[in-house]
Design a protein around this nucleic acid. Structure first.
Lengths: 204, 204
DNA sequence: ATAATAAGTGACACAATGTCATAAGTCAAT
DNA sequence: ATTGACTTATGACATTGTGTCACTTATTAT
């Protein structure tokens, strides 16, 4: 987490810093990103950066988490629309991310994150499915929104593992799209094939 | 790939270099590994390293690939034992890797690789399932060893996606074991739950 | 006004990377 | 044996990057 000085910053300065960091993390993956570039673009001295963040990673994960939170809202709405059908909701989320990744130029950020998914990064994304902090400290358990009757499970433990499987597969498909430079259509087709295999089971 | 000078090296020198590199990649993940440490341990000048490898990554992937090839043999045997049942064979492979990871000290190498899986690393591991170069240039297609009758698929394309799903899930389980520091027993139990869910399908 | 606390600053020490000019070694042909 | 073409070895160097620290400046409380 950023240090408290970061949150004490005047809005415009903080925003400029965020913007500069996003720019750098959009340019190259985390490992190649340079603090020098960030502070230069933000017009602050090097020492200040360390006043606000522990290090490069701290800044990166803060930004990634912020972006992910936006996607949570979409996911919740989609889950409601689909009457608690988790597989359908995840399909919607996959489409959203395809769309996002095609659109804005500065969303190379997401691309760079996907191309270097480590378990830490995957964990951040996975938070979409756990707990939602919607505005006024009201916590909604997404777990409870999911219609478990639609799933082929006998206990709560199996439900957890279904979520694990779904995230692994969804991720892998997103990563593939970029590492293999596949068209949106093809990526979606691949993903749907896999989702259907998951639905019906791999074994005869 | 290493440069040709690397392969021209006298055996003992090459082996010492390999050993030193493995040591360094066992100490820390790729991003933190230092060429300085490798050349120091191998007793060669810095410039020589670049005579043999393009860079750090080149050396890392070369070593990773070498290790992975060893696991291929095991996988093939296991696939035969299980009469082409791919899910059963993958379960065996998972057990093998758990065992390997528990045993030798220098197999922190594998651990460091797993904790920082990117699509490149996943791709190297995935090669286990594609083509096997067994000793005398005889190529065996693993694909053909798999009994597709046991799978719930209608075409070759779906078969490919089943492999995708299985690798994603297997990986995720291995990574989890180390990122969450789970016991072998628990890791295996989790993995088996997911494999069974995959078998029977997620949806009612 | 003064003290205390927080924030800002940039030079610095240190470590890492990849390159390059030069030295040393190998080997076949004369 | 000598030459010369080619391959390999070497380590100093330029460059870039990280995180720290002593010191300055601003802000807030008393």
């Amino acid at each position: 987490m950023p240090k408290k000085t970061f949150f004490n910053l005047p809005d415009n300065k903080r925003e400029k810093l965020i913007e500069s960091a996003e720019e750098e993390f959009s340019r190259v993956p985390l490992s190649q990103a340079s603090i020098a570039n960030i502070v230069k673009a933000a017009g602050i001295p090097r020492g200040s950066f360390y006043q606000y963040f522990e290090n490069k990673e701290d800044a990166f994960y803060y930004l990634l988490e912020a972006q992910t939170n936006k996607r949570k809202e979409f996911f919740i709405i989609s889950l409601q629309k689909n009457n608690g059908d988790i597989l359908a909701a995840i399909e919607d989320l996959f489409c959203l991310m395809l769309k996002e990744l095609g659109e804005e130029d500065n969303l190379n950020f997401l691309k760079n994150a996907l191309m270097n998914v480590t378990h830490e990064i995957e964990d951040v994304f996975t938070k979409i499915f756990t707990i939602k902090d919607s505005g006024k400290s009201s916590l909604i358990e997404i777990r409870n929104m999911i219609d478990k009757e639609k799933l082929n499970i006998s206990d709560e433990k199996e439900f957890f593992h279904i979520m694990q499987i779904l995230t692994s597969v969804t991720f892998r498909n997103l990563v593939d799209k970029y590492s293999r430079d596949i068209s949106d259509e093809e990526a979606l087709e691949n993903f749907m094939i896999e989702m259907n295999l998951l639905r019906k089971g791999l074994s005869k």
